[in-house]
Amino acid sequence: MRLPLGGRVVQLLELRLAADQFVDTLGERHLAEHRRAVVGVRPVLPAFGAFPFLDEADVEEGEVVALIGRNGVGKTTTLRSILGLTPPREGSVRFRGEDVTGEETHDIARRGVGWVPEERRMFTHLTVDENVRIATPESANVPEAFETAYSTFPELEDHRGKEAGDLSGGQQQMVAIARGLVGDNDLLLVDEPSEGLAPLIVEAVADAIRTVSEETTVLLVEQNFPLATELADRYYLLDHGTVVDAGSTEGVSRDDETIRRYLSA
């Protein structure tokens, strides 16, 4: 199901990344240790051999595209590369036809790229209101942003003054998505939104993503295969930083030969 806005297909994001920047899970853990440290830290990650290029991947305006694959194949790194958090060693990221490779993260973000990261990354000591406010661009109207956030997630309305760290996992995930929503983004990078949540909450989060995807284009990383295919229009199946399969999610099942091969542990 494609929703080309304005009736024509617009290429929003094009990726061409050197796969050798994709690292194993050990590398990602290393990265996680560093990320709360000072920005600008570019940890030397252990690279495992020289892999071929990640085949060109793209996202068109209005789509929901899922990146699927086993742990550590480079899904999260792809999202980080788009934002310039893990700058591509080789290759390029083009957003709206412009090369944004090597730009500063905040400049890329201001171009309209939002991030709903793994583990939600709340500012735990900021209130829910403040978490929403900080994601609102300087030029935007703050009360309007609150209106958008709390009409999408009525449940959060009651907790506006609470510190985000005191919320439940599901509520935090809603705040994370709300931050992406009020950021006036054209592209939202959503990383493992269902991770660590109870099935009932997952359903609510999935609803939230569906709502958001009516407004914005979404690039989704999701372990939960049925959920990923349900939400997305298209998918890319990754292995070792390389696209091994791609296509429409319509009619795709876990039992397909290729998918089973690359998803089983």
Partner: peptide, 25 residues
């Protein structure tokens, strides 16, 4: 102040703040 908000957020997670469009440098 808005700047104070940036500082409190950046103190906790500078990378996330950047990804929300804040010029942390």
């Amino acid at each position: 102040t808005r700047y104070g908000l940036y500082i409190r957020a950046g103190s906790e997670d500078a990378e996330m703040a950047q990804a929300l469009g804040i010029d942390i440098r």
